[in-house]
Amino acid sequence: MTERLPLFPLNTVLYPGLVMPLHVFEERYRRLVADLQALPEDEPRRFGVVAIRDGREVAPVRETEGPAGPLDGLGTVTGDPREALYRVGCVADVTSVRSRADGRYELLVTGTTRFTVESVDASGPYLVAETRPLDEPSGQGSGALGAVVERAFHEYRKRLAGAKEATLAGDIELPLDPQALSYLVAAATVLPAPVKQELLACPDTAQRLTAELELLRRETALLAWLPSLPAADLTRQAFSPN
């Protein structure tokens, strides 16, 4: 079964079960939000979040003056938009919408299920994709792996706090469910976007936890050698620009 979803490309990764704030200011995404707002009350307001390869921006195809390569000066994809996007994304359910006087929106969305992009329609004001939901089996040994990853994550956070010469405010309450744990650790660890995307695309929970364990041990060892390494604050998350 496939589902047709509007796409919201970002330079970050959304995971199932995680909440993300979005500041919507570009016209094409303002149109997307307006179209969602216009849906009947009983219809779900959701779209697909997909990460952009190499930090590029994507938009529907439109004619422009002058020469244009794969991306023109307006950030428009002049070829296949799938080349600029990762194939695995996450459905975002709109939790709240706040309209601003200047036409912008502030959204709060929650990741629900993963999907693969089967095809992309670039004929409208924003990209729309035919998507196929992805199942996620637990995989062998996910429960035992979860306990090990939890300990490694706590040690990583201690090292990170030391690297910042500050104490991270509060503590992250980790879920007992291995799948939920795997996604929270993926979201809360300071990693490059391509690595976060690889974690999203893991075929099962056990493989994601195995990859995270290796990453956490590596990052913790690196922080031990480089105590002044700068890192993002895991307890705060700014609005993601579109």
Rank of each mutant, 00 (worst) to 15 (best):
R151I: 03
A38P: 08
L174M: 07
L5W: 03
E3K: 13
P178C: 07
F239I: 01
E155P: 00
G55M: 08
V91I: 12
P133G: 08
D93F: 01
H23A: 14
V185F: 08
L199E: 10
E26L: 01
R100P: 03
G162F: 06
A34G: 05
P67Q: 09
P178Y: 10
L209A: 02
C90Q: 02
T220I: 06
K164S: 15
C90N: 05
Q140A: 14
R56A: 07
L226H: 06
A221H: 06
G111K: 02
T110D: 13
G146S: 10
G124V: 03
G170Y: 05
L22Y: 07
R236K: 11
R217D: 12
A129G: 10
F47N: 08
V13R: 08
R218Q: 09
E3W: 02
A186C: 05
F115Q: 04
A187T: 00
A163M: 09
A231L: 06
P16Y: 12
A163F: 01
K164M: 12
T78V: 10
L32F: 06
T220F: 02
F8T: 05
G139R: 08
G139H: 11
T95L: 14
L85A: 07
G170R: 03
T220L: 00
I52R: 11
N11Q: 15
L181S: 05
Q37D: 14
L184Q: 14
I172E: 13
R56Q: 11
D204N: 10
A59G: 08
T112G: 07
Y105T: 02
E212C: 11
L215P: 07
A232M: 10
L199D: 03
E150I: 02
G141N: 09
L200C: 05
N11V: 06
P60M: 04
G162M: 08
G103I: 11
S119T: 12
R45D: 07
T113S: 10
E3V: 14
W225L: 15
F115G: 05
E212S: 00
R159I: 01
L127D: 13
T95D: 12
A144T: 09
G48D: 10
R45F: 03
M1E: 04
T110S: 11
E173K: 14
E43W: 03
L39R: 14
L22Q: 11
F47V: 02
Y156Q: 07
R31T: 15
L39V: 10
A84Q: 02
L174W: 04
E198H: 10
